[in-house]
Structure formats: structure tokens, C-alpha cells
Nucleic acid binder design. Structure first.
Lengths: 244, 244
DNA sequence: AATCAATGTGTTTTTGGTACATACTACTAT
DNA sequence: ATAGTAGTATGTACCAAAAACACATTGATT
């Protein structure tokens, strides 16, 4: 198993003895998942004595021969085996004393993954899923990083079809609504929710029904092909709020 | 006069000979201004032979003893003499080859300043204001940084009262609308614009009129005290789009 | 005095969001 | 088998905000 965190710490301790502008650069991944109506985040036990018994985000130093953007993909693949995940840069955190072992600036990314698709790989591992809502403290400044990421996710999820990265391929509208509620932290009206989702035209009705549910089964849907990992980035023309 | 860019380049060239994870960290400031109905950005002549005759953003390496967030404030004060400017982190750029002198990861910030308030300091200087709309090429990856920053600014300006950092203390609604149009890149309807601005309740009518204008003078306004540099950050509750 | 160019405001229409009620389907307990 | 329960599924009325739009006002210029 990979023991990256120790490597990272050792390297950071080494770096503090170098001169002038020697600052270590890392990435930290806020890996979101969804299970049992709860938004989850994948955490690892901190290996620093300063943060004993605290959990931390999964991160690593940026390698000299890799693009910054590539680092979180590498970290995610090393930790979870997943490729082609949805990743989004959130913010860069660089307070002087944010890392006890030395000067480290970290760029935070959040990722959305389907917990079921990597369940087996996590057994016998120091990684665990935690309910986002229940987290009270994390190592380093990772609590703030988590909060910032969650805020970004909340904004993003409303207008862009990224939420489906957290769900299995087929899902009912009820499950989708549960997920929205878990992310947004508030209950939604079922009828209005369904209206708006159909309006967005993100879903394909696949003519299947839920099975083995203890009630009337709901219809199953898939995300329309091509939408799931699409990046909807900057080149957004001026919004309508102040239109002519 | 400060000759930071050369220092930065020299330091970067030195750093490439250091081992392993030695990556330089810089900040780049996209300093927006507004004049003659044009959105402007403050640029400096690149001092790298690779980018001869190209302009670049104003940046510097992050010092080992300063917070990342402090660096852009320092850069801005050194370059323009301005304190208490409005600054916002945009994104961090870290492609391997983005800087020809070595591995540099840069965090971009944008800033909004009133051009008039620092006009004198820029004479006999290698700094110049450029029309954002006219820029076709910049040194490094600064064109993309500029575009990304502009997109952030566009989003921000709609909901938050930050635009006033670009204006003198007193201004007419017409000037404000011109500025919105310059930023958003589209024309706005005067009546709807005024309605929405008054609805936002950001302005104080100071009972003064424009002077020396070749037409009917308009009323002058100020931003309401306390709003100008206020940060309206993350703790934003779930938006109304999907409310109960 | 008449014209021009800008400021300043009000009304209607349309759209989209919110609130809300009822019918339908499957499983469960009697 | 029947009634009850808990979920799915859908439609309608109301309200607020955004867009489209027209006219009166003020001051400078001719």
C-alpha cells in the first residue's frame, strides 16, 4: 500500500532547511461520495504527532515533472484506483504556519466519486468515509478546505450536471433528490424538484423500475451521454441578471 | 524604482538547480482599472528575452515569511503605493512549462483600483494601463490568467458591491452603468439597470450633481459606507433555485 | 425659441419560482 | 380480499422578479 503521507512529511522537513524561496507545493483532494442519504468525504489518519487521532484530507506534494492539474488525478488514482474522475480546483491555501513540518502551500481540489465503484479497494486501509455533516475537526487547515470545497460544490451542483458523478449509473429521482438535499443541506419540494430537473433535460428515462424496494418502485434514469464529466468552464458570456 | 521582475527571474533560475520538489511559488496580480468607458489592466514590460516586447501581469515570488494571501497586497503596494485594495484569489496555474526560467506555480489574484487615485505614481515607469478588450497576447500564460480573472470578476460584480472600487468616490448612475457594460461586455437597459441598482440598496444619494458636463447633469451617488471592501465570502446558505 | 442630447421615471408582459392537493401503485397487516 | 400505509407521479394557482417598452424632464447649443 502507498505510504505517501510520510514521504510528504519527510520531504517537507527536508525542505525547510533549504534557503530563500523554498516553499513546498502540495495538492489536497476533497473526495466526496454519497451513501445512506449522507454526503461523505474520504479521509486518512494523520501521521503527524501534532495531529494524532485527527483525520486529514488526502494529498501529496506536486512532483517537479507534473503539471499542477495532474497531481490530484495522480493522487486519486493512487489512493482509489479511479481514473476519469470529476475534479475541480477550489482554492489555494498558503498561510505560513498551516503545516507544522514546514512551509507548504496547498491547492485544494474536490472530486466526486461513486462510492460503490471503489468499495473493495478500501478494505484493510487507513482510508475511511466520513459524514461531512458530522465532522468537527480535521488536521492542518483541512476543515476550512473542506468547507470551502463544499461551498463550491453547492454552487456548482445547481447549474451544472456534475452531481451524477456521485451516483451509480441508474438512479431514481427520489435518490437524486436525496443527494441534492444532502449537498445543499435543506429539504426540497418533490414536485418542484422534479419539474426543474426535467426542465434541465439532463436525464434519459431508461424504462426501468427500481427493484427490491419495500414500496412502489420508482422509474430509473441515467444521465444523458456526454454530460457527466463535461467541463463547463469559463467562457461564459455575461449572465442574464442585467441583460438588455 | 522597484526592479522586482528581474529579481524574480534570477531567483527562479537559481531554483531550477535545486533538487526534488523545489518549485517556486509566485503570485500574479490582475489589476483592473476603469477609464474612458474601458476596462483596463495594469501591465509591465516583460524582462525575459523569450517574451521580448510582450507585456505581462505584475507578480512576485512569495516570500518564505509571508502568507500567500499577503503577497498580492505587498506586490500591489510596492507597485502602486495602494493599500486597502480589493483583492480576490482566482485560480492557481501550475503547468510544468509555463515559465521559461524554471518551475513556477503561480496563484492569480485580481484587484480593483481607481485609476485616478494613483495616476501620478505611474509616470516614468515601465507600467502601463491597457484596454482589456484590445489585448491579444501576453507573456507566459498571462492571457489565460487574465481571461479567468475577468470571468470571475463578471460573476462577482453581479451580486456583490465590489465594482465601486473601480470608481471615484462620487459617480453618476450613467458612469456606473458604463462600467458594468465594460465589464460584462454587453449593453444594458437603462431603466432596468437603475431599477435593479436601487433595489440592491448599495448607494447613497448625496444630493450633488455632475458639473462641467455638456448635457443635463446627472445626480451623484456614493457607495453606502461599509459596503465597499466588505468580503462576502463562503458562508452562503443554499441558494434559492431549489428551495423548498 | 427651438432643437438636441442626455437624465429620470412608470407600465405592461412574460417568465420562472413557490406553494399546494390529489391520484396512483405496490407492499403489508389483518 | 380488503383496508391501510408509504411511497411515486403529476397538475394548477399564485406571486415576484426580469424583460420589454414609452414618455416626460432638464440643461446646453443653435
Amino acid at each position: 500500500m502507498i505510504k505517501q503521507t510520510s514521504l510528504k512529511t519527510a520531504a517537507i522537513e527536508k525542505s525547510r532547511h533549504l534557503e530563500y524561496f523554498n516553499i513546498a507545493v502540495s495538492v489536497d483532494c476533497v473526495i466526496f461520495g454519497y451513501q445512506d442519504k449522507q454526503l461523505k468525504v474520504l479521509l486518512i489518519k494523520s501521521d503527524l504527532k501534532e495531529f494524532e487521532d485527527l483525520w486529514s484530507l488526502i494529498g501529496d506534494l506536486v512532483q517537479p515533472n507534473e503539471d499542477l492539474e495532474s497531481a490530484p488525478y495522480r493522487v486519486l488514482e493512487q489512493r482509489t484506483g479511479l481514473k476519469d474522475v470529476y475534479l475541480e480546483q477550489v482554492h489555494t491555501f498558503g498561510n505560513i504556519n498551516r503545516h507544522p513540518s514546514g512551509r507548504v502551500i496547498t491547492t485544494a481540489y474536490y472530486s466526486l466519486v461513486d462510492i460503490k465503484s471503489l468499495k473493495l479497494k478500501l478494505t484493510h486501509n487507513e482510508l475511511h468515509w466520513h459524514n461531512v455533516a458530522d465532522i468537527v475537526e480535521l488536521a492542518f487547515d483541512h476543515k476550512i478546505i473542506l468547507q470551502t470545497s463544499l461551498n463550491c460544490l453547492r454552487e456548482r451542483v445547481i447549474e451544472h450536471p456534475v452531481i451524477f458523478n456521485l451516483l451509480p449509473e441508474k438512479f431514481s429521482l427520489r435518490r437524486l433528490q436525496d443527494l441534492y438535499e444532502a449537498i445543499l443541506g435543506q429539504e426540497l419540494d418533490r414536485r418542484n424538484f422534479r419539474k426543474r430537473i426535467t426542465l434541465k433535460n439532463w436525464l434519459d428515462d431508461i424504462n426501468e423500475m427500481e427493484e427490491d424496494v419495500p414500496h412502489r418502485p420508482g422509474k430509473l434514469y441515467k444521465i444523458r451521454p456526454g454530460l457527466k464529466n463535461k467541463k463547463f468552464e469559463p467562457i461564459k458570456i455575461a449572465p442574464s441578471l442585467m441583460a438588455v
